[in-house]
């Protein structure tokens, strides 16, 4: 995110370049709690969606990100999100003329044990 994003600030999402990948991370805070003791499913989905944009921006680094719009997202919740640091990273599976397909992963302590995954379609408006 190279722009001022109030929502990212509300949930505490920030870029994490520890591995050089376009990872977004969120530290635990009461503002993201859903059912007691767990992160709200909407926050996890929101983070996954932002990680798809982050990965797309990473693909377009150099030329700059065209105007994009979300088409849809499908999230699978695999484990409850505990009160700890949470990370999300997306792979851009394909970039077409009009549509990008992204596949995202959300994890906490162990990257091999994701707490949620998502597939997302993003509309690319190269004229805009």
């Amino acid at each position: 995110m190279d722009f001022d994003s109030p929502y990212a600030e509300v949930i505490g999402a920030h870029p994490n370049r520890a591995t050089g990948e376009p990872i977004l991370s969120v530290s635990w805070r009461p503002a993201i709690e859903g059912r007691p003791g767990f992160i709200h499913g909407g926050v996890i989905a929101g983070l996954l969606e932002m990680s798809c944009y982050e990965a797309l921006a990473h693909e377009f680094r150099g030329t700059g990100l065209p105007k994009v719009k979300p088409i849809n997202i499908a999230v699978d919740y695999l484990r409850g999100g505990l009160m700890t640091e949470t990370h999300a990273l997306a792979q851009i599976v394909r970039i077409g003329k009009r549509v990008a397909n992204a596949s995202a992963l959300c994890w906490q302590d162990d990257r091999s044990k994701p707490i949620a995954t998502a597939r997302m379609h993003i509309l690319i408006d190269r004229q805009g």
Binding site: I11, H40, G41, G42, A45, G46, E49
Partner: peptide, 10 residues
């Protein structure tokens, strides 16, 4: 952002 809309729907 879509996040709050997803939270609302969830």
């Amino acid at each position: 952002a879509s996040g709050p809309i997803i939270s609302l729907i969830d």
